[in-house]
Amino acid sequence: MKAIEIENLSFSYTKDQEVLKQLNLEIELGSHVCIIGHNGSGKSTLAKLIIGLLEAKSGSIKVMENEVNEKNIHTIREKVGIVFQNPDNQFIGSTVRDDIAFGLENRRIPQEKMDDVIDEFSKKVGMFDFLDQEPSNLSGGQKQRVALAGVLAMNPDILILDEATAMLDPKGRKEILTLVSKMKGDNPNLTIISITHDIEEAYLASRVVVLSDGKIMFDGIPNEVFSHYEELLNIDLDIPFLVRLKRELKNKGIDLDDALNEEEVVRRLCQ
C-alpha cells in the first residue's frame, strides 16, 4: 500500500492558468519527503488537494487506497493531518487545551478520555505548562507546536507540513524541526510530507521532490536532486550549503564530490 498515489492530476483556480499540470507522484508509507519549489509552483495547492480542501479538475488522488472525493472525505481526514503556515489562523480554541480538544471533539472522542490525550500530546510538544494560556500570550513557535499537538492527537498516518516553519524565527523553526524528527523517531510508520522553503531541511529528508510550474522537475535523494545546480538556481531555488561548497571548491580544483558530510569535507580540506 502507498501513502499517496497521484495520477495525472490537474488543477486551476482560474480558467487560463493551470497550477498543476498532469502531475504524477507516489509516496511510500513511512517515508519522509520534502516538496520544494518557488512561490506559485503549486506546492501548497497540492497539499490542499490531498486533504480535499480543493477539488481536482482531472486526474485522481488516492490516500492509502482511498480515492479523495466527497464520499471518502472523513476517512481521508482521519488519515491525513496538516499543519499550515500561519500560526494565528489555525489556532481555533480559546486556550491551548481547547485547541487540542477541538479535533478530538470533531472525532467524537468521549469527553472523559480527552484530558489524558491532551496531557499526553501537550507534553510531547513541550506545551504542558501552557495548557491554560490564550494564543495571544504565545509565540509563533509555541502556537505551531500546539497545532502539531492538535494534529498528532488525532493519530494520523500521514502528516503534511505546509510551510509550517516559514513564519517563525530561527529558534521556533529549529524547535519544530527537532520535534518533527522526534515524532518520526517515536513512530517510524508516520509518513511525513514537508512542503518547505528551507533548503537545509530538504537536504536532510530521505527524498526531495522539486515542483516547478505545476510539474515535477526533479525527484530523488537529496544529493542527486541538488546536483542539478544550475537548473535549481534558474527556478529561484537555493542550494544547500554543503552542495554549494563542494561545487565551488571543485571549480577551484579541489574535488570533494564523494565526501559524505560536512565533517569529512573539513577533515579532507585540512589534510
Binding site: H38, A166, H197, D236, L237
Partner: peptide
Amino acid sequence: TAGLDPQG
C-alpha cells in the same frame, strides 16, 4: 525578508 523565498 521574512517569508520571502531565498531568491527574493
